[in-house]
Design a protein around this nucleic acid. Sequence first.
DNA 1: TTTATTGTACTATTTTAATGATACAATAAT
DNA 2: ATTATTGTATCATTAAAATAGTACAATAAA
Lengths: 122, 122
Amino acid sequence: MAWNLNSDRPIYAQILEEMQLRIVTGLYKPGAKIPSVRDLATEAGVNPNTMQKALAELERSGLVMAQRTSGRIVTEDMEMIRETRNKIAQEQIKDFVDKMQKLGFQKEEIIKLLEQAEGGTV
Amino acid sequence: MAWNLNSDRPIYAQILEEMQLRIVTGLYKPGAKIPSVRDLATEAGVNPNTMQKALAELERSGLVMAQRTSGRIVTEDMEMIRETRNKIAQEQIKDFVDKMQKLGFQKEEIIKLLEQAEGGTV
DNA sequence: TTTATTGTACTATTTTAATGATACAATAAT
DNA sequence: ATTATTGTATCATTAAAATAGTACAATAAA
């Protein structure tokens, strides 16, 4: 899996997003155990402390729960997972439309440009 | 004008973007003088050094030119301005589509969601 | 000519992010 | 019972970003 970490934003914030993505897309399934802090840190090529910080924040959102010595598990609340996915999507849409309109594009133009855009992994 | 600076990215980078936006949207017109470093810093509520760093980078892109004591002026190369606007838009589109597809939305769904989205300032 | 404004340079300090290293308690695995 | 793994806590260090303060040369404005 690609972590795609770059330096123009705090790494722990990028990790947080990536973890949300993995849960929301079902790579880490509801109720399943996720890799340990140390393993994830190695996989992402960051310091365990950095991964720990990201996971601690992820936990505040309720998507995962830490269990002292048996590791962390993803929530089984599929409704929460669905909602998180939608919330992220809505944020993306809002940010995108706002920025494009700031650039002077109107809604119809934006949609036209999107239709022209590459299909990608579909 | 709103600067909308937040702490989850370097401030000078956000300022750089905002300045590009102002030029590209015509708020700062081709050939026109832009406010001084100190004035812009005050307006944005940041340290002059931070504004200076952002403007120095903006200058590297060629959108503005510094003239020792008479201030900075926006380029008169309207083609460059147009290109910059398109480049920014394309980046936005790419980032948006990539992220949405990572979330599991297909192109058709994305467009459908956009059509439902608020019209905003149009 | 004098004054004020401009971009620019410099040094120091503070804050935040990230790393490095180590340690400990709880408990699953052996 | 012993060992290994787990989350977690702590301390120190490094690097980058931002702030604060000061200064200077060039020149537009007075």
